Amino acid sequence: MTRFKADIAKYKRYSNKSALVLLLTQQGLWALCVYRINNRIYRSKIPGIFKRILLGFGLLWQKWIEMIAGISLPYSASIGPGCYIGHFGGIIVNANAEIGADCNLSQGVTIGVSGRGSNRGVPRIGDRVYIGANTVVAGRIEVGNDAVLGACSLVINDVPASTTVLGVPAVQISDKDSSDYIL
């Protein structure tokens, strides 16, 4: 549960509230808690039938969180510690996506599959990446560490580290990194 502790610590940096208040009020933390527990079970060495039973209950719990929080974090996705989901709803992460440590996901973010043939796949997102509201990140692409993906962008090409991209499709608009967005 050290990854979830890192998630809580990040939420505390943003709000200056106690862990209990955050756990009671932040839908992003609810979704991350369920994800962390289910992901731990998924990656464990629990014997097959017991793991499937636990994951069956975990899937029901995940679906409940999806309905009340509007956040879908499948247990098979890879999400690094210190994730921050600042606002309610509309967040969809593909089951095979990889998200690095200390990333921020805004409302309406989709991280999904796209492409054709050998280009079909899901994104790999580096550490300390800020993903703005209503941004879609899709396809077999790499997003470098410390990148900023601007609001309402469609990111379908690789993003170099420490840059800002914006638009449909997203293009590099700045060499500024995410340090102004990530605490």
Rank of each mutant, 00 (worst) to 15 (best):
A161E: 07
I92R: 10
G90C: 06
A97Y: 05
S106E: 12
P169D: 12
R43N: 14
I53L: 15
S162Q: 08
K12C: 09
C33S: 15
L23I: 13
L23H: 00
L149T: 00
Y35E: 07
V168N: 15
V137C: 04
W64L: 14
G70R: 11
G90L: 00
S72R: 13
L24F: 11
Y181M: 14
D102E: 13
G86Y: 11
Y11S: 01
S153H: 07
T163H: 03
R124A: 04
N94F: 00
T135R: 07
V34M: 12
I79M: 04
D146M: 05
N94L: 00
F57R: 01
R40F: 15
T2K: 13
V113Y: 12
Y35Q: 03
A19S: 15
I79Y: 07
K12Y: 00
W61R: 11
D180W: 02
S44H: 10
R3N: 14
G121H: 03
G132K: 11
A9P: 00
Q27C: 03
A147E: 06
P47G: 09
Y14L: 04
A95Q: 10
G167F: 10
R120L: 09
P169H: 10
D158W: 04
V129P: 03
E98Y: 10
R140Q: 11
G117C: 05
R120N: 07
P81H: 00
W64S: 14
A19P: 09
G28I: 09
Q26C: 12
G132W: 03
Q172P: 07
K12E: 15
T135W: 04
A133E: 08
L29C: 05
N104W: 07
L149G: 03
T135D: 02
Q172N: 12
N38W: 08
K10A: 15
M1R: 05
Q26A: 10
P74Y: 08
D7F: 02
K10W: 00
L105F: 12
Y11I: 10
D177N: 15
L32D: 12
G117W: 09
F50G: 14
I49P: 14
A97T: 06
A147Y: 07
W64K: 11
Q62I: 13
L24H: 05
Y14D: 13
A6L: 04
G48C: 10
V34Y: 06
P47W: 07
I37E: 04
K10M: 13
S106C: 10
L54I: 12
M67C: 14
V34W: 08
D7I: 09
G80D: 04
L32E: 09
R52N: 15
L59T: 14
G167D: 06
V165D: 06
I85E: 01
L105V: 05
A31C: 11
T2H: 13
Y14V: 00
N38Q: 10
V148S: 02
A95N: 08
P74E: 11
L166Y: 06
C152G: 04
A151I: 06
G100P: 06
L55M: 07
G144M: 04
R124L: 03
Y35W: 11
R13Y: 00
L54P: 03
I173E: 01
M1D: 02
G86I: 05
L73N: 08
L149Q: 04
V159S: 01
V34K: 06
N119S: 14
L73R: 04
L59W: 14
Q107C: 02
